[in-house]
Design a protein around this nucleic acid. Structure first.
Lengths: 191, 191
DNA sequence: GTCTATACGAGGATAGAC
DNA sequence: GTCTATCCTCGTATAGAC
């Protein structure tokens, strides 16, 4: 299994990737925060690519777990939508945007295996949200036009974009909340 | 005035920033495409920061010009909205997202003057779109809830996010079009 | 304005001792 | 598992000739 040090490295690296992107963090940066020499990191993760690849895999699994948890809770569909948005809001407290949004910006310079992970992440997330929106559509809680899938893609795009835009605001988390939540309740609250 | 070589450097650099981000392009990359040695680039732009700063200034002015051109055309308000979306679609043909969206991802590592430029860019763009949406609101062409400004911010967020998400699609430009335009016409076409 | 040459540091990665 | 030491490459930047 993954050692404690491996976990610590992954946690620190996740912070850095989500905050600065792929090119702007180094083993030197990690070593400082973890408290070991940078050569030691290569023992746990032979290359930077391998490290980031595991990072994205882990992130994707975590997202799937959280989405599943939301879907199997007893919350109403509208509340589930809010909880989904909350996933994006949470990171912003530490200036972290969605890891796959950040890596989408770096997409052109990423090795192919990582690109494939990112594609899978978005495929899964869109599929999950589409299913949620479809339930509300069937129950006539809201009306997605022109289609639930397009609405799902648009909504995820808006969440990612709102995270990005919030970065250049004075208070990121306020900026994010004050745009996303009113829009969500205007469109998806039970009338 | 800016020399021809300066212009060529700026054009190539813009391509690279919008495609790879701030950290993942170098003077060496530019020199190859422009056809001069990398030391020569320092004659035109002493530092990388200075180069990118001028890049963002130029980009911001170009955006303002294009928006002004749209607003003073004879197009209907709905058409103006489509033309605004077209600005985002155009770049995707060369795998380019909005420069300020890309630099928002890199925001944490940018020098303060560049951060300020980016903030100004978004402030201006949101203000312009808010004014457009307000006109349509007054003319009862569409109904922005909860407010025109929030709708404007949400719409820009969606456009930026859609560009990002489209990167991990097989055909970026198709993915962008097939999400954004149906959503736009569903919400903002004259009923 | 552009060149060659070069300084200097940072980043990724490996070898081998402990 | 972690260390020191080291290698090699790349990136930014400067000096000075042409």
């Amino acid at each position: 299994m993954a050692s404690e040090t491996s976990q610590k490295i992954l946690a620190v690296a996740e912070d850095m990737v989500r905050n600065r992107g792929y090119s702007a963090f180094s083993y030197a940066d990690i070593s400082q925060q973890v408290g070991i020499r940078k050569a030691s990191i290569h023992y746990h993760f032979p290359t930077k690519d391998a490290l980031v690849r595991e990072l994205v895999q882990r992130y994707r699994e975590g997202m799937a777990r959280q989405c599943h948890w939301i879907a199997t809770s007893n919350a109403s569909l509208s509340q589930q939508l809010i909880q989904f948005a909350n996933l994006y809001r949470q990171g912003m407290a530490q200036d972290q945007i969605c890891m796959c949004a950040m890596l989408s910006a770096d997409f052109a310079i990423l090795p192919e295996p990582i690109q494939a992970e990112i594609q899978a992440f978005f495929r899964e997330t869109v599929a999950w949200l589409t299913a949620l929106l479809q339930q509300g559509q069937d129950a006539q809680i809201w009306d997605c036009k022109p289609s639930v899938e397009q609405e799902a893609q648009g909504l995820i795009a808006m969440l990612q974009g709102a995270q990005l835009l919030a970065r250049s605001a004075e208070n990121s988390i306020d900026a994010f909340e004050q745009v996303m939540y009113p829009l969500l309740s205007a469109k998806f609250s039970r009338g």
